[in-house]
């Protein structure tokens, strides 16, 4: 910097700072209010699109993102936080429940999953929504990168023991994810827990009114 101005307190400077901060605040408030409905719509549409991917078209006739349950099951899932579940129904009968869950024990942090379970207890699909696994190894959990997740599609899980819910490498029944054992185990563990939870709380999940909390008995 060149010459420094005299050190006397500059009230004008303070005023100009306040004016600039105020103007920027007004500009941000204006943008936030004008975009908020559009952003909410976009987020809703994106969420609906993701949920739609998990279920065969025509197998349900409700708006998936509107029949929401809040599942409180401390100890069942890795985090104590409530889990969101979406119900799909056909002619008023619930046909599937989609759980939005996070596996916190990925190789590199959280793996956000959507897990769809049919009323008969079988798995319909598992999808990864967000993850930060190692490129080239752990990121094979993405359907875009490999077919690993496809093994869960329309999978009957009745009679699977805890030992079965492992990758083949550890004597289980599921495909390995080459070079990403930790990633695969994290997904498998979360899917197993969800299937187990559904089996235990099935009746409650099916009859609970929408937008209500479901508590573990």
């Amino acid at each position: 910097m060149t010459a420094v101005e005299p050190p006397a307190f500059n009230w004008r400077a303070l005023l100009s700072l306040a004016v600039i901060a105020g103007l920027m605040g007004v500009a941000i408030a204006a943008i936030v209010t004008t975009t908020s409905t559009r952003i909410a719509d976009q987020r809703m549409a994106a969420r609906l699109e993701r949920l739609t991917e998990l279920l065969p078209p025509g197998s349900y006739d409700n708006a998936l993102h509107q029949d929401i349950l809040v599942v409180n099951a401390p100890g069942q899932f890795q985090s104590e936080a409530p889990v969101t579940a979406y119900r799909a129904s056909l002619a008023g009968e619930v046909v599937s429940v989609i759980f939005a869950l996070t596996a916190h024990d990925g190789y590199n942090g959280d793996i956000d999953l959507l897990i769809a379970i049919h009323v008969d207890g079988s798995l319909q699909a598992v999808r990864v929504v967000r993850h930060q696994e190692t490129p080239g190894l752990g990121d094979q959990v993405e359907l875009r990168k490999s077919d690993w997740l496809k093994q869960f599609d329309q999978l009957s899980v009745s009679g699977l023991s805890h030992q079965d819910w492992q990758s083949r490498k550890y004597g289980g029944r599921f495909d390995n994810l080459t070079g990403a054992t930790i990633t695969a185990s994290a997904v498998l563990r979360t899917v197993e827990r969800t299937v187990e939870y559904f089996q235990q709380q099935r009746d409650k999940l099916l009859v609970a009114p929408a937008h209500r909390a479901v508590n573990q008995s």
């Binding site: 100009s16 901060a21 941000i28």
Partner: peptide, 16 residues
Amino acid sequence: LYYEIRIPVFVIIIAG
């Protein structure tokens, strides 16, 4: 824009 407040002003502008 005054010399004393230029950095806060820049930060407000960039963040905003």
